[in-house]
Design a protein around this nucleic acid. Structure first.
Lengths: 165, 165
DNA sequence: ATAATTGCAAAGCTTTTGCAGCGAG
DNA sequence: CTCGCTGCAAAAGCTTTGCAATTAT
């Protein structure tokens, strides 16, 4: 899993005449050891719990590098901070359903959706490059049963919930 | 056009026990006199060209108010700054095609797309609240003819073009 | 009169950057 | 030995906020 990422990163690094460093590798490992979306700050917390040490500056510089190398993608989850998504490498289509009750994000794919997007794009005189669907929705289980595992998990983890509107 | 907005805003203001002020009204007028998306800073420039005067603080406070009142929507155009969209009031569905060559944004609607989104959302156990599609695409006309009116317009207006990736 | 609103300047937050020293190739 | 990388602290952007004065109702 992470080996693949390292291989691809090393290719990029070599091509650009850059260098491999322990800090960079530690950050990359930390990012890709999970499939979760994260903000720079959340990543910083995860790094701090590691025995590897890297500065915030290096963290930001590495994030930019990974995005430039195409190994990481910035996504919009309606948060104030930039959010990064580490697993679009394995799934070309990248759509997110965001729960307005708890902020939980579900990634999904759908061939019909992609096809339709593709057609619409061409009809408007463009060639598709990247497409993402963002769906905000409320949890049916929470409405009918009064609770939802994702919400409970979010509370336990102390995540700040979406601001109501 | 703008009257409708003012009416709806006044309702909101009354309901909340707030007050109507010249600054607020000037900002609202400036926002809705155009259909363009804008950032806080772009709006600030537009305000400055007006003979009305309002501070940046009031501008930000008014933006929050309008979003809270549901008259303005924050959207994500892949920019660093928050972008606001003034015309989702007239079109319930809100999808954006962003040109990666010049940053030009096309708003579009499509019934099939909405229907499909709706089905997918329900299948995942949620009830749809809001959905937006973001398509990044490159301009076919620019590829085939070597130029594109939107790109020329963007250059003339001195807009900063999308960073290439 | 009363309480919301405004403008200013200061503070807050996230992210970027200049620079001297360090370290990979 | 070179030149990229790192950490630090300072700076940069954008946005928010405390406060005294102002103003709508």
């Amino acid at each position: 899993m992470t080996e693949d990422i390292h291989t691809r990163l090393n290719e990029f690094i070599k091509k650009k005449g850059l260098r491999s460093t322990p800090q960079r590798n530690a950050i990359v490992d930390t990012i890709f050891e999970s499939k979760d979306h994260f903000t720079a700050d959340e990543l910083w917390e995860r790094i701090r719990k590691t025995n590897s040490k890297a500065s915030r500056a290096t963290l930001y510089r590495t994030l930019s590098l990974l995005v430039e190398a195409g190994l990481l993608q910035e996504i919009d989850l309606g948060e104030d901070q930039k959010t990064y998504d580490p697993n679009f490498n394995n799934s070309p289509s990248h759509n997110h359903l965001i729960c307005v009750d708890c902020g939980y994000v579900t990634e999904f794919e759908d061939n019909h959706l992609e096809l339709l997007n593709d057609c619409l794009t061409r009809r408007m005189g463009f060639r598709p490059v990247r497409q993402s669907i963002r769906i905000e929705a409320c949890c049916e289980m929470l409405r009918t049963k009064g609770s939802c595992p994702n919400l409970i998990k979010a509370r336990v983890e102390g995540k700040r919930l979406p601001k109501k509107r």
